[in-house]
Computed example of a mutant assay.
Amino acid sequence: MSPRRSYDQYCSAARALDAVGDRWTLLIVRELLAGPRRYTDLHADLPGVSTDVLASRLKDMERDGLATRRRLPPPGAAYVYELTARGRELLPVLQALGRWGQAGLGERRPTDAVRAHWFALPMLRQLEGEGLVEVRLDEGDFHLYVGAGDGAVYGVGPAPREPDARLVMDTGTCTAVARGELSVVDAVRAGRVEVTGEGTPAKALREG
C-alpha cells in the first residue's frame, strides 16, 4: 500500500483532497454509488484506468475509510467493493461537481467513452418524490433510487422490480439534460420522454 500523501495543511478542504484528490478516486466513488461492485466491473466501467492504479486507489479508499471489501456468500463467492457511510457522504460532492462541470461538457468527442449509468447522477438531481425509477436509453438502461436515504442511489441495468416510474428517451435528450440545456419536466412536456408508472416520481413529472 502506498504511503499517504498529504498537503500538510490545517484546512478541511486540504484534508478532503488528501483522501479524494487523486486521479480516479471520485470516479470510483461514482461507480460504487451503484452499490457493491466487483473489481472486474469497476475496471470495465472506468475505461482508461490501469489495473495497478485501480487496485492502488481501492486500497487507499479502504485505508481512508471510504470503501470496504467483502466476499459474497455462495454461489457468488466473489469479492466486491462498496462504499462506507463516509464514502456515501460524497454524493453531494459529486452532484456539485457535476453541476459545475455542465458548462464544460460540450459535444461528445470521438474519443469519449460513455456508459448509460453515467447519466444517473445528473438525472437524479432533477427527480422529485421517492421511489424506484427506471431509465431506458439507446445506450442501455439504469435505475435510480429517488429519495433514498441510505445505500445505493442508482443501479446498472433494468430495475430489479416493477419501478414506480419508467422513463424512455433517446440518448440525445438525456445528454441535453446532463448538459443542463433541458430539464426532465420540459422534456416530458415536449414529448421527448415517455413516462409510465403510478409512483410519486412519475406523477411529479406528469404534473410538473
Rank of each mutant, 00 (worst) to 15 (best):
G106T: 05
P73G: 11
R86G: 10
M123K: 05
E31P: 00
W118E: 07
W118N: 03
V20E: 12
D52W: 12
G106M: 07
R109G: 06
W24N: 01
P122Q: 08
S56N: 14
P122D: 09
L121H: 02
Y39A: 06
L58E: 01
G35Q: 03
T68D: 12
L33F: 05
E62A: 06
S50N: 09
V20K: 10
G87W: 01
G87I: 02
F119I: 02
R88A: 14
A67I: 04
V20D: 11
A34H: 05
G87T: 03
W100T: 13
G48V: 06
P110M: 05
L90C: 05
E62K: 09
A55L: 11
D52G: 14
R37S: 10
L121M: 10
R86N: 14
Y81I: 02
R30W: 11
L27G: 06
A96V: 13
H43M: 13
A77E: 14
R71T: 10
A77D: 15
M123E: 06
R115Q: 13
E128K: 14
R37V: 01
D52M: 15
L121Y: 03
T111K: 09
T68A: 13
L42W: 02
G21I: 04
L94G: 01
P47F: 08
V93S: 14
L54T: 03
A78H: 15
R63C: 07
L121G: 00
P36W: 03
A96T: 15
W118F: 07
S50E: 09
W24T: 00
D112R: 02
G76N: 13
A85Y: 09
P122A: 06
G104Q: 14
V114G: 06
A120S: 12
E62M: 12
F119G: 00
R108P: 11
G101H: 11
L66H: 03
E89S: 15
W24P: 00
L54R: 08
I28H: 01
D41E: 15
A67L: 12
L72T: 09
R71S: 09
V80M: 09
L32G: 00
V93P: 01
R88G: 02
L42T: 02
G65I: 05
L124G: 00
P122N: 09
R115P: 00
I28W: 01
P110K: 05
A96N: 14
G104P: 12
R38C: 04
V29A: 10
Q126P: 02
L127C: 03
R57E: 07
R38G: 11
T51D: 12
P75A: 01
S56L: 13
R69F: 04
R108W: 07
E128S: 12
T25F: 02
R115M: 08
S50L: 11
L42C: 09
G35N: 06
A34L: 11
R125S: 11
T51W: 05
